[in-house]
Design a binder for these strands. Structure first.
Lengths: 209, 209, 209, 209
DNA sequence: AATGAATGAGACTTCATTCAT
DNA sequence: CATGAATGAAGTCTCATTCAT
């Protein structure tokens, strides 16, 4: 039935210029609403109020609360991947790319709290979209790791699992910075994490003399 | 209203033997219900049905839907920490403890899907309980890492951040095994992840000699 | 899914004495509401108001607007059949039974306008229930006609079709008396119709001399 | 507001050639939509889609959903009466006319399910139009019966009531063939019904002699 | 200690109709 | 003559919670 694969649905409805504007207003309003209240406590009527349109207008653009939520997950996917791609573009090696990428990620999370929360919550609202989100992300990441492995820049091992572990670290830290109040300055956390990512938990070998 | 700190509320209500039995039935029913349907789609009436008691009875033991959810998060916290402690008890060093701990964790997740899901969802249902859950966990973990650092078994760095990164890896992998369909055999994932945890992403140094 | 055969569903919900009373209040309120406004213009909230209960109470007894409607159709079926059976009980032959039955029917319609309307509307609201209603009715009727045919009291022919034709006459006349304003006194219409039923359109044969 | 008498409204709006074409498209689309879904489940937007025009266009031709529905009832009235008139034109006597008329009617119902349904539903949507429909029909029918009575071809009695009874039979049978699944071949039903109409329920008199 | 009927606020969604273009 | 985006009222249904027994 409703198994429209994510990545394919981009919202139907009115297609004129004005319509496009309205859709954007709705999407952005929904981002704020879902981000602040969570899916279940968000209400369509609140979304339309934020967007400055009548309630009925919503359904001209999205068939349901679920659908706009999914659209938001896709939006986040596109936005974040583009952002990260651009950030690590100039990195000269994998190690640097990791560091830059993690930092860009953490900053992105801080600047887009709502989207971040939506992606996390999608796990409970639309598992399919959630899976799609992370498989897409991990797939791209794994590709880079595989290439780096080929170049001898990364330790051998299943690149997909490696990607997952790294994404796990990133999201978990992103979360900490988002909802916990004990977060240290971002730079310090970054330092420790990057270190761990590069060298693992093992102590440095004593300098060889 | 009064935000009873987690760790303090353990459910009030009738205190007789029979009462105790009823509370346990409710808690266990709630575990299944929340685990299967998620907080918002779970219903008190379903919980009481599963527990085999009348609807009104619920409120003799828990003041609200939120309260029993929180009780479950605490339950999971206690259960998992005890389980992990026991698992890593016999480890002879930190490295081994990491490996055993991760494996125990993944198996625990697989065997207690409902609790796992509840903990993840607590982020959106009761952020305070969620924070408490992870701070407790990370605190204990960091303590062990600090000790290991002192012994030279673990790379220096903020142990709390290290703990967070490791927990991030573990939960992310747990999740993958729970809801994704692409999960490889647990052993293989374990191998790659453990490797990464120990040595990081850096390639092995070329054999010296 | 929802193909519960009519005649089987009698409404679930609370089963105590008090519950039974509430169900009856609801059913009777619904009868008035549907009868006056028709299915689509009737509202659950109006029904519950008439019944003097809260809106939510409705759903303790009936799963949907459709379900209570169907219950009403069944109610009408039982009530009318019992009523007609009793009316024609004392008839000494088929001809008399026809007359008495038609009269009883017309009076019943006049006294239960709401139920009558509901049965007619069921055609558009719940075709299955509608079909069931008339097949049941026609089945019983045909049985009697078949018996009468055997006794030589009724002209030969498919008794089911005969029953249908007679029911058609009755309902059509019932309708006329319900919603048209040109209805003549019931006795006169009865006279003509009975005549037609007995002898058909053919003119009486000239008295044989 | 102002209850324009049926028979008078035929739809206003643009009067050019093109306009006329659009009106016809709308009417025909509405016939399909109402026929398939019923008045309340039909939607203007669906009608305009079927007609291939924009939603707003609808209101250039009909003031409301009710108005186009009524227009359809009138359309059916005209169409059916013309059809029946033509069918019974060549009948040499009343008896034959009855038979031919009933058959033509049943076939017409089968071929115009949508219109038939609309007429039946008008009872609940627009009782005035419904009454008008049948009074018109019964009036013409009664006229013919009166004439036949004068010629001694039909049993005496109030011709209007007779007409009603006959229409009742016809519509009931039409319905059976439309929505029930137990309908026998049309010819057989016709045979029994015609017989009943002509001779009534009374058994044939024993052959004289 | 338990029951279970009753409550009522609130959510999503539909759709006839309007109006600026 | 036509368009189609926007409106907003209204309706069905769910469910956490209460309370009389």
């Amino acid at each position: 039935m409703e198994t429209t694969k994510p990545g394919l649905t981009s919202g139907s409805g009115p297609a004129t210029e004005r319509g496009e504007r309205t859709r954007r207003k709705l999407l952005s309003a929904a981002e704020g609403e879902f981000g602040e209240k969570g899916f279940h406590n968000a209400s369509i009527s609140s979304i339309t109020q934020r967007a400055g349109v009548a309630q009925g207008t919503f359904y001209l653009y999205y068939r349901s609360k679920e659908e706009i939520f999914r659209a938001l997950v896709e939006h986040m996917n596109r936005t974040m991947r583009r952002h990260l791609s651009e950030a690590i573009e100039g990195a000269s090696n994998r190690a640097e790319a990791e560091r830059i990428g993690l930092e860009a990620f953490l900053r992105f999370c801080r600047d887009h709290e709502d989207l971040f929360r939506i992606v996390m919550e999608s796990q409970f609202v639309d598992p399919e979209a959630h899976r799609w989100y992370f498989q897409t992300l991990a797939g791209g990441y794994a590709e880079r790791l595989r290439a780096a492995q080929a170049q001898g820049e990364v330790r051998t091992g299943d690149p997909y699992t490696q990607a997952l572990a790294l994404i796990g670290i990133a999201f978990f830290m992103g979360q900490r910075h988002r909802i916990w109040d004990d977060s240290p300055p971002i730079e310090q956390a970054l330092e420790t994490a990057t270190n761990l990512i590069h060298r693992g938990l093992c102590p440095e070998p004593p300098p060889q003399g």
